[in-house]
Design a protein around this nucleic acid. Structure first.
Length: 407
RNA sequence: GGGUCGAUGCCCGAGUGGUUAAUGGGGGCGGACUGUAAAUCCGCUGGCUACGCCUACGUUGGUUCAAAUCCAACUCGGCCCA
């Protein structure tokens, strides 16, 4: 037997990890203990992480398992990223209270590519042997009805209904379609197809990852380890980060947007954000929450842009907040060339995109949110006769939105 | 296949013939306060360059001076029976 490495060597594995199973802490059997397996393996392990190309934008919540995947890569293992191009057409029912719409193959393909681009800052794409990208249509598209029935025969309706999402929907008398039952089975079959040693996933994926183990056993393979990662809370501090709740930080957002969102991280979330989104040692976090917020924002923005860009974003954010809009090369410009004069201010708010509609513009003026060159506008029907009256002036909506009017 | 109930604004959810974009909550946006936050308080929350005009309560027709509210068919869904 190989000499036992000190557990501290596996801190990268434990950091931000919610649960690993199977996990028999006292065991030295590498099939029951991931650390034992990692110590004793004589080849790079195959670490599976699947992603459904259902939307085109990833956010920091998605980055959590990928960061863990990167840690495995750095430890010398092989990341197997599975693009669920086939499963995306079904839609993962996990955590959904309703059916997802099905995507066309074209949409799926497009989404897959943008996903990979967004993952570039996180994963090691360059070191040979560290990354494998597979599309699950490769094997799922080949299954015939007989094989599908065999897969279906491994699970009971009771087992499926025990799954959180289904149980809820069933209880609420919401529709559950039969094809949705295929989803966990297909994801599990992915593990068989790529011969995964370990699969990563969010805690909401527990059921699906377990199915992988069952199916691997069914197909005569050693069942994979499953490593569950916590779901990142969004910056509202209550719900998990998600696009639909609009509490997310997108991976492709520009440095300034990203920075301004992150520097507002609720105090209660700071520690977990540091743990999950950075490599900062947790015993070295600043005591002052405001300092910590800034450090966090700087670190994360630096990862997805560059440290220099992060620094710039910090300066810009500071200027913006101090109402120092005059310092603005950062202030976007809007040309009045296409606007017909005389023009009312609420209409202007709408065409510049500062407000969603002219009605909203009107309401925002009444609410005291609109300023021109720093002076609050109070007259809803205020209008300007000629472009010269507005030339070069800065129109402001709320605290954060500015636009400079140019000819 | 039969029976039965349901479909309301971003979401949930009142309203069941008659001023009025339609109670309330959530969310969102804005204002005050502040640490750029949280908590709290206040305002707004269909569209239109607007003292007015449109479009809205699953779809399409109908009854009526008048309908989200009544009727019919249709679409989608829940439950029960087969």
């Amino acid at each position: 037997m190989l000499p036992v490495t000190s557990p501290s060597e596996f801190q990268w594995l434990q950091r931000g990890t919610q649960e690993i199973f199977p996990h028999v802490p006292d065991s030295h059997d590498p099939n029951e203990q991931l650390i034992a397996r990692l110590q004793q393996c004589d080849r790079p392990l195959r670490i599976k992480l699947g992603i459904d190309p259902t939307g085109s934008d990833l956010h920091l919540g998605h980055s959590i398992p990928f960061r863990k995947l990167r840690a495995f890569q750095d430890a010398g293992h092989t990341a197997v990223v599975i693009i669920g191009d086939f499963t995306a057409q079904i839609g993962d029912p996990t955590g959904k209270s309703e059916v997802r719409r099905q995507l066309t193959p074209e949409q799926v393909k497009l989404n897959a590519q943008t996903y990979l681009d967004q993952l570039r800052p996180i994963l090691d794409f360059d070191t040979p042997g560290r990354l494998e990208i597979r599309y699950n249509s490769e094997w799922l598209g080949q299954l015939d009805l007989k094989e599908i029935l065999e897969l279906l025969a491994t699970m009971t309706v009771g087992q499926m209904l025990a799954k959180e999402g289904f149980a809820e929907r069933y209880k609420k008398e919401n529709p559950i379609y039969l094809h949705e039952f295929m989803y966990p089975l297909m994801q599990g079959y992915d593990s068989v197809a790529v011969q995964a040693d370990v699969e990563l996933g969010g805690t909401d994926q527990k059921f699906n990852l377990l199915v992988g183990r069952d199916l691997q056993r069914q197909f005569g393979q050693a069942p994979q380890f499953c490593l569950l990662l916590p779901l990142l809370l969004g910056f509202d501090g209550v719900n998990k980060m998600s696009k639909s709740l609009n509490n997310y930080v997108g991976l492709t957002e520009d440095a300034l947007t990203m920075y301004s969102k992150l520097e507002k991280t609720p105090d209660a979330l700071l520690r977990s954000y540091f743990e999950l989104l950075t490599n900062t040692p947790l015993d070295q976090l600043p005591d002052d929450p405001r300092t910590a917020q800034k450090q966090l924002a700087l670190d994360v923005v630096g990862q997805y842009h560059s440290p220099a860009a992060a620094q710039e974003a910090q300066t810009a954010a500071q200027a913006l907040v101090q109402g120092n809009q005059a310092s603005g090369d950062a202030v976007p410009e809007f040309s009045l060339a296409t606007v017909e004069f005389p023009v009312k201010v609420f209409y202007l708010l709408s065409v510049t995109g500062l407000c969603k509609s002219s009605g909203e513009g009107r309401r925002q003026i009444q609410g005291g949110a609109v300023r021109l060159e720093g002076d609050r506008i109070t007259d809803v029907n205020l209008e300007f006769a000629t472009p010269q009256d507005l030339d070069g002036k800065v129109l402001q909506m709320g605290k954060k939105k500015f636009i400079r009017l140019v000819p």
